[in-house]
Write a protein that binds this DNA or RNA. Structure first.
Length: 108
DNA sequence: TTCATGACTAATT
DNA sequence: AAATTAGCCATGA
């Protein structure tokens, strides 16, 4: 299975109204150093309708740049899910999704 | 095979 | 606190 497909599979598990970090996904892939490839996978993602890549943010809760979705689009999508987005930033302590058992616990 | 690149992260200025 | 540097590694040329 491709790295990309694994990334998509993980991202699809993120529930409505929650977000995850690239590092978390990388950790689920087995190597926390893969965070860049995670972002790259999402960049190459053509099925953004199926894969909720707007729920993926960086370690600080900052949204992706405008180049990825279009200016303000990701913020709007997250807002529609009930997530408070301020200045392209979300509060991870509230909205970060906690992966279950089979995945390692992410740093807080 | 070697080189450059990137939706990242951590450490240093 | 903000900017820069360095490490990371799967792709594509």
């Amino acid at each position: 299975m491709n790295l990309f497909d694994r990334v998509y599979a993980i991202v699809r598990t993120v529930p409505y109204g929650k977000v995850v970090t690239y590092g978390q996904i990388a950790l689920c892939l087995g190597n926390p150093k893969l965070s860049r490839q995670v972002g790259w996978a999402l960049h190459a993602n053509k099925t953004m309708i199926v894969v909720p890549c707007h729920r993926v943010v960086d370690r600080n809760g900052h949204l992706a740049g405008a180049f990825a979705f279009g200016d303000g689009v990701q913020a709007q999508l997250l807002t529609n899910e009930g997530i408070r987005v301020v200045n392209n930033h979300v509060d991870l302590s509230i909205y970060q999704h906690h992966f279950t058992s089979d995945t390692r616990i992410q740093r807080i």
